[in-house]
């Protein structure tokens, strides 16, 4: 779904990312760890085409972004959802208008169709009651959940989360993680998660969502339940380069002192 080859970028003579290689398969979750200033957010913006890399090849959902114009990229971006840090909801629009932004922009949708689709997505993030509220009336966690609902409009197969749980209390952060796990395991959404919240990262790599016999969603943990493989990998960025790639166990067992210091 996402393939990066030799991607490099520098700003004002300073190398931000160098020779990045990355592959993320369908329904896979890649967690990108790294200290602030390591180039994580820039990498996300490159993947969605918001920032152009100086060199390298970027393929997203079978589209070669590196050779596309800004206008061509607009069409690709509609297939990729991005949840920004703090949500980045449009202040002047209601929750309904935020979530339905893509539909209003495309045009040709009736108000009933829009309402139905918005309610469907808001019920997924358990925020139906906020439909007529303004973003300023929502708490930090609610804003992120509305942002997830907005990113899901149009059923993107790829979701990119930029620090989805930063600054949230553990309970709210957990509810966001639950949503991310459900999207990965039940909807088959490919995701890249940039985070510095290790507990959220470990949660994503140890929990999986399944449907039980009553068609209810249940979360199972690899530590306590009989769960085999959870489709999550880690990459660690350091000073613009990837210094580690692997699963949770490999991450915990890594010898690199930087990684050890980072995860403890």
């Amino acid at each position: 779904m996402i393939h990066l080859e030799d991607v490099s970028i520098s700003f004002g003579g300073e190398q931000i990312l160098r020779d990045i290689h990355m592959d993320v398969g369908p329904a896979e979750c890649l967690i990108l760890l790294g200290s602030s200033g390591s180039g994580k957010s820039t990498l996300m913006k490159i993947i969605i085409g918001l920032v152009r890399a100086d060199s390298g090849r970027i393929v997203v959902a079978d589209h070669e972004l590196s050779s596309m114009t800004e206008n061509e990229m607009m069409a690709v971006r509609q297939k990729v959802g991005m949840v920004f840090q703090e949500g980045a909801l449009f202040d002047s629009l209601t929750v309904r208008e935020n979530v339905a932004y893509r539909l209003y922009d495309e045009g040709g949708w009736s108000e009933e169709e829009i309402e139905e689709r918005v309610l469907q997505l808001l019920s997924f993030v358990e925020l139906e009651h906020t439909i007529d509220m303004m973003p300023s009336e929502l708490s930090g966690g609610m804003r992120r959940r509305v942002a997830i609902a907005r990113a899901l409009m149009g059923n993107p197969r790829i979701l990119i989360y930029d620090e989805p749980t930063s600054g949230l209390d553990p309970v709210t952060a957990r509810s966001i993680c639950d949503l991310m796990v459900k999207l990965r395991d039940l909807e088959g959404v490919t995701s890249i998660v940039v985070t510095s919240d290790l507990s959220a990262a470990f949660f994503l790599s140890t929990y999986t969502a399944r449907l039980d016999n009553d068609n209810e969603t249940v979360l199972l943990s690899s530590e306590t339940d009989d769960v085999c493989y959870i489709h999550t990998r880690f990459s660690v960025l350091k000073e613009g380069g990837i210094v580690f790639e692997g699963n949770l166990n490999e991450l915990k067992g890594a010898d690199d002192p930087f990684i050890q210091e980072f995860i403890t």
């Binding site: 969605i48 971006r77 991005m82 920004f84 909801l89 202040d91 922009d105």
Partner: peptide, 16 residues
């Protein structure tokens, strides 16, 4: 809108 990433969000949603 720029400093709260709303412009980036707009571009990410496919709007110029």
């Amino acid at each position: 809108m720029v400093v709260t990433d709303q412009i980036n969000a707009m571009r990410a949603l496919g709007t110029d």
